[in-house]
Simulated scan of single mutants.
Amino acid sequence: MEYRKLGRTGLKVSEVSLGTMAFGRWIDEDASAAILDAALDHGINLVDTANVYGEGESERILGNLLKERRHQIVLATKVHGRVGEGVNDSGQSRYHIYKAVEDSLKRLKTDYLDLYQVHRFDSNTPLEETLRALDDLVRQGKVRYIGASNFAAWQLAKAHGISALHSLHRFESLQPEYSIISREIEKEIIPFVQSEQVGVIVYSPLGRGILSGKYRVGEAPPEGSRLAAGEQRLEELLKKNAIPVAEAIRPLAEEKGLTQAQYALSWVLSRPGITSAILGASKLEHITEAAKSWDVKLSAEELAKADEATSNLEPAKEAIPS
């Protein structure tokens, strides 16, 4: 496992991190424990969750499982989503952030968070209010670093400007979606974060499972898969060129001696500006199989070959049956 600095900070995180959205949502505590054990055994030190995953169950399960291993990991969670029926039970107001962080600390059974991230941009709350609240948490020792998720480049730039103006701790990381089928961040975000030394922890490097090759045109989705469950975001990707891209990388993966999923992950980790890729595991083999290729990187020539194979592909004409 390779470890990379999180942006300009001195914090080192594993290039593959564990995403725990499945914990308490699709899998129980025993299955979660097996995945967490395997992740730590294979060198992962960054574990990512959110207070809304499984309505708090992901954090609760992690709190039960970490115990004496808490110091071994960089623990990251998020705030923004609705966690109650009250009018102030969502967003990034000082009120909500203060309540949400205390609830997360209780569920995670820890005194501090290594990385506290705002889950998305909140247009209803002044950024200065959010940043001052997060800065207070850092100064209180409840949070080590702060980050953002799903921000546009201009939103992150605005936040950095406010932090610089008022001498506040700034967002040191960004968590966007990124894969060989979702490359929007390459236009503005990647140049910006490279210029400003911001860590990039990407989610869905396997295109929500599409790049593993599990979905085929004309075939019903596998039983128990996210597509079979009707996940809307996955269906949206399939309306684009996701399946043709997955088909295009198959021979490239075989040439490299990798599975499609391993190749897709290696592609992300070989791209410039990426600090870590979140592997959202719901099965033990998601960790053990991925671990076989963590030391594989694609050369500039291989990346160019992937670009050539996946550019200008049209959406699949034949739908995947429901």
Results as ranks from 00 to 15, higher is better:
D103G: 13
F192S: 09
K214P: 00
L238W: 00
V202R: 01
H71E: 15
A309W: 07
S167F: 13
Y53G: 03
F171W: 00
E55W: 14
M21G: 12
V74P: 00
K187D: 09
T288D: 00
G273P: 01
I73C: 02
E247K: 12
A133T: 03
L165E: 15
I274S: 01
T110D: 05
Q117F: 03
K283N: 11
Q155M: 04
Q260N: 10
E59Y: 04
H80Y: 15
S282G: 15
L127P: 00
H71G: 12
S149L: 08
T77Q: 04
S14I: 11
A290M: 12
V200K: 05
A33M: 07
R183C: 02
R82V: 07
D41Q: 15
R144G: 08
S293V: 06
K109L: 11
Q262I: 02
S266Y: 07
I146G: 07
I249Q: 00
S104I: 03
L298F: 00
E128F: 13
S195C: 13
L284W: 13
G199V: 07
S293D: 03
N124F: 04
Y215P: 01
A50G: 08
A291T: 11
D30S: 12
G161E: 11
E177M: 14
A153I: 08
I249M: 04
D111G: 15
H80Q: 14
L234E: 11
I190L: 10
L279M: 07
A50F: 04
T125K: 09
H169V: 07
K305G: 03
L65M: 05
S311R: 15
E29I: 15
H80L: 13
T310I: 15
V202Q: 02
S58I: 09
A304F: 12
V198N: 06
V79N: 04
Y98L: 11
F171I: 03
N51T: 08
